[in-house]
Amino acid sequence: MNNFSYTRATDITSAVNEASREATAKFIAGGTNLIDLMKENVARPTRLIDINRVPLNRIEETKDGGLRLGALVTNADTAYNDQVEKRYPLLSRAILSGASAQLRNMATDGGNLLQRTRCYYFYDVATPCNKREPGTGCSAIEGFNRMHAVLGTSDQCIAVHPSDMCVALAALEAVVRVTGKNGDRAIPFSDFHRLPGDTPQIDTNLEADEIITSIDLPPKGFADHHAYLKVRDRHSYAFALVSVAAALEMDGNKIKGTRLALGGVAHKPWRSKEAEELLNGKAANSDNFQAVAETVMHGAKGFGHNTFKIDLAKRAIVRALKHAAQMEAPR
């Protein structure tokens, strides 16, 4: 871990000012990912700006009837919040399927969006990695890639975003509110994370001096028909091989609206509007769900160790949609 300076910010303006003065400064909140990366010499900030005392730690209703999650609310406090549990149970489920109780007590909602990939090569400074050191090459493409992406990859990077929470937020079409030197912005969730393309070192569309202030949930919470299915290599405390957030609007057995987001398969939570629209006005049944799964995974490409994810994702999509439609009870 490098030596660094430490500043404690108590309001947003001073936090942003601090950040804009030093290009290699970083905000720190929960620290569960940044300190990890600093110990591996992957992240090497020269200054940490501690934002834990910035008052962004509340959950409150928005004017449009949605819910605003302050960026510094912990994952645990979000998952167990009465309103979230009641109106956005999909989000609760997703959060609680990630990490451990201890980490969820530390990690913040804003930080969850900014966590970096778990790619073995990204984490190991002895190996080349375009995300860590642009231009050095991607070791995963021809290497060990069990955890890696099958959708939206580039020849520069096949890393996946590791979050569970973000998969639910993508399905819920949350809005990320940020502020920076150039004022406030609201970023639709689907535009927040990026695909690797030729710039795999850049994970999100957040500017260097910008800070997430809140994650706003729209009024529609899909509390009646939702499912979060996480498939992983052990029963707990493991990152997803594939995860699916499914949310349905139903009229009897007829589907009026569909939201489907996948984790563990791409550099960002994966949505396919085209696939979601397939279900509009259709009945909830295995064939229709299978068609959705095929459409979502159309064009998916495996790299050897991870090729099974293509088939697994299809199975998981069908299963999650069945759970959401209550065709079968989640197990």
Binding site: Y120, D124, A126, T127, E142, G143, F144
Partner: peptide, 10 residues
């Protein structure tokens, strides 16, 4: 990883 001769999930 056979290319690096290194245990990667360390």
């Amino acid at each position: 990883d056979q290319k690096f001769g290194r245990f990667m999930n360390h």
